[in-house]
Amino acid sequence: MENGYDITGRLVSIQRCSVHDGPGIRTTVFVKGCQLDCAWCHNPESIAFEEEEFFYPEKCIHCGKCAEGCYAGAREKCGREMSVSQVMEEVLQDRPYYGDEGGITISGGEPLCQAEFTGALLDACRSEGISTGMESNLCVPETLIKDVLPKLDMLMADCKFWSPELHEKWTGRSNVSIIKNFAAAAAAGVPIIMRTPVIGGINDDEDEIGKIAEFAASLPTLKYYELLAYHPLGVGKAEALGKKQERFSTPSGEKMKRLAEIAAGCGIEVLINSKRYTND
């Protein structure tokens, strides 16, 4: 097949009609595999590159025929190979709904861990006139990000900590390349949505958020900065994968507003959990 349509990627899932992965109605392609290991990851099934299996004991009907396939939803495979062509078949079904703002978001996992597939999928969308977005951790070599930036209409990325040490402690890697790649994306003119998952007792620190917001304000292509309160969705999913994930605390609404106030003080637009923050 031409134009990279036969290149395959390993995916967790495709979520159609997504409303939390960028502007408008979006189709979000979750790739499998990530080089970070954030302690609170809400998609723990997207960390490992290998195929995995969820087990939900409450759905088991005890038919004793697991080996012949589970149809009750108790055992569910996670991870499948799909070609760009197959992904596009699903994406195109959502196209009528994209309006002026919507489109595709490649998320994960880390899309740039499957850079060839991600690039080919972005090309395919561009050739169909579909607006492209990518949600990346940006913790990749600059050359990798520079290749993909021209294919993007929007970049979503987390800035989880300002401190490189804390970043490494909680995600397994330093944020030095992340900061650089934010700047590279801005220099390339790509609109940026910066986000910070706010984890109670970990990074819900006014000074930390203030520094991140200052940096966000320095990016000329920033669309907005979003604070996302921690939720424990990943704990249950990790358990279903046979893994253990620590449960953190969710910052209070007051705390989120205070952090948003500080961020907004840097002169940027701030959202809390998808809702625009205003100080009235």
Binding site: V19, G24, Y97, E101, Y224, S274, K275
Partner: peptide, 22 residues
């Protein structure tokens, strides 16, 4: 909650318009 989210009403309208256009 959808209406309170950034662009929420536009998203709903995008869905309605696409459906009737089809």
């Amino acid at each position: 909650r959808m209406s309170m989210e950034e662009g929420g009403l536009d998203r709903v309208l995008d869905i309605l318009e696409a459906h009737v256009n089809m």
